[in-house]
Amino acid sequence: MSDQVAVVTGAGSGVGRAVARELAAGGWRLVLAGRRPEPLEETAGLAGGEALAVPTDVTDPVAVEALFRAAVDRFGRVDLLFNNAGAFGPPTPVEDLGYEEWRAVVDLNLTGAFLCAQAAFRRMKEQRPQGGRIINNGSISAHVPRPQSIAYTASKHAVTGLTRSLGLDGRPYRIACGQIDIGNAATDMTAAMSAGVRQADGRIAPEPTMDVADVARTVRHMAELPLEANIPFTTVMATAMPYLGRG
């Protein structure tokens, strides 16, 4: 994959950093996006190889356009977007969730994913050879909710619709789209799970986690399929986490 170019959002930590390092190990050239310059540069250093760090607010259309323009200016094309940037937001009862809190989660998880997908789609459609792949980071919450997570859950359900529409609309242009739904990967975002998180019955209980490297390897497998093949949806989760019995 030494001539392939991947844009990874939310690349400064967690799943994004792990995926960037895994892709770099496979020879991908990387464009790393995130809000904070220092963690992006750290990821670039850890990944090695050819990596361009572009501080980006994915909720800002102008910033997203600049990100993809920088990718093409540096590497000539975009073969993969890993649409990863997202946030859970504080657990909040429905009746207490403020409008700005709702908007912050939905704007990042859904609108940001759309803006990046749209910008990638445009490049993939116009470049030669034509085509590319978009992989959206969904969540177990794209299937079933956690308590007090209405904004996150709604946004991740909507990402599933985004994935399906992109997959359909991309067919004429060799643009494949898939989604990885992740459950309890061990990152800073899930650190509280070992201490205990709210369950469907109201209890606070610890939950098992899995190595984030297992997520990264799955994304790389999806990314390196030929464009004639696609994994539209896959779920990778800690084996013993409450998912099948979450409700």
Rank of each mutant, 00 (worst) to 15 (best):
N84L: 09
A85W: 08
A87H: 01
F88K: 00
F88I: 07
G89T: 04
G89N: 06
G89Q: 05
P91N: 08
T92N: 03
P93S: 10
E95A: 13
D96Q: 13
D96F: 06
L97A: 05
Y99H: 14
E100P: 00
E101D: 15
W102K: 00
R103Y: 09
A104S: 15
V105K: 06
V106Q: 09
L110V: 07
G112W: 02
C116I: 00
A117P: 04
A117L: 03
A119L: 09
F121W: 01
R122A: 14
Q127F: 08
R128K: 13
P129S: 12
Q130Y: 00
Q130K: 11
G132P: 01
I134G: 06
I134V: 15
N137H: 14
N137G: 03
S141P: 07
V144G: 05
P145D: 12
P147V: 03
S149T: 09
S149K: 04
I150F: 01
A154H: 02
A154F: 03
H157C: 11
V159S: 02
L162P: 01
R164I: 09
L166V: 13
L168Y: 13
L168H: 13
R171K: 14
R171I: 12
R171D: 11
R171Y: 06
P172H: 08
R174T: 04
G178N: 07
G178A: 11
G178F: 01
I180K: 04
I180T: 10
I180M: 15
D181L: 11
I182H: 00
G183D: 06
G183E: 03
N184S: 15
N184A: 15
A185R: 00
A186I: 00
T187Y: 05
T187V: 13
M189K: 07
M189C: 04
T190Q: 02
G196F: 09
V197T: 12
D201C: 09
G202D: 06
R203D: 12
R203H: 11
P206V: 11
P208S: 10
T209M: 13
D211F: 14
V212F: 02
D214W: 15
D214S: 14
D214E: 15
V215F: 07
A216P: 07
